[in-house]
Measured scan of single mutants.
Amino acid sequence: WVPTKREEKYGVAFYNYDARGADELSLQIGDTVHILETYEGWYRGYTLRKKSKKGIFPASYIHLKE
């Protein structure tokens, strides 16, 4: 896992994603996520609506905010 280059990196989910394991994070369309790390097509972070739950999710489900 590699920390993100920018201190504040955010994105928005444009697909729903159902977590398949305890380390994964479920997403709903429109969720804003804070991205902490990246690795081979995956991000690690949390949604702003539930900051206490961190997990991994596919990068392809996220539109990055500039």
Rank of each mutant, 00 (worst) to 15 (best):
R6L: 11
K65M: 15
Y10I: 11
T32A: 11
Y39G: 07
V12T: 08
I62L: 02
E7K: 11
R6D: 13
E37M: 07
D31M: 06
Y43K: 00
I35D: 00
S26N: 07
E24R: 03
W1P: 07
H63N: 09
D31Q: 04
W1T: 09
Y10M: 07
G11T: 03
S26E: 04
S60C: 14
G55Q: 03
S52L: 08
Y39L: 11
I35N: 08
L64S: 02
G55D: 02
R20W: 06
D23V: 06
K65A: 11
F14W: 14
Y10S: 04
K51N: 09
L48P: 04
E8I: 11
P58G: 03
Q28D: 06
G21E: 09
K9Y: 09
V12N: 02
Y46N: 05
L64E: 03
P3S: 07
Y61I: 15
E66M: 13
N16L: 05
D23P: 04
G30E: 01
S26T: 10
D23K: 06
E37D: 07
E37N: 04
T4L: 09
E66K: 13
H34Y: 15
Q28F: 08
E37Y: 08
T47G: 01
P3E: 09
I29C: 10
A13K: 04
S60E: 12
Y39N: 13
E7C: 15
P3G: 07
L36C: 14
P3R: 04
R6H: 12
L27I: 06
K53L: 11
G11L: 10
H63F: 10
T4E: 07
Y39H: 09
D31G: 02
E24T: 03
R6M: 11
E7P: 11
W1A: 08
S52P: 06
G11Y: 04
H34E: 05
S60D: 09
E24M: 04
G45F: 07
F57V: 02
Y43Q: 00
T32Q: 12
V2A: 10
P58H: 04
S60Y: 07
E37Q: 07
W1H: 07
Y43V: 03
E66L: 12
Y15N: 14
Y46W: 06
L25V: 07
Y46Q: 03
G30N: 02
R44I: 06
A59S: 13
R49T: 12
I29A: 10
Y15E: 15
E40N: 14
K65P: 07
L64V: 10
A13W: 05
W42M: 02
F57N: 02
K51E: 09
G45A: 01
D23G: 12
F14Q: 13
Q28A: 09
Y15R: 15
H63T: 11
I35F: 03
N16M: 07
E66N: 13
G11H: 03
G11A: 02
V2G: 08
K53F: 08
A19M: 02
G30Q: 00
I56G: 02
E40I: 07
V33L: 05
H34S: 06
F14K: 15
V12P: 01
E37K: 02
K53C: 09
K50M: 13
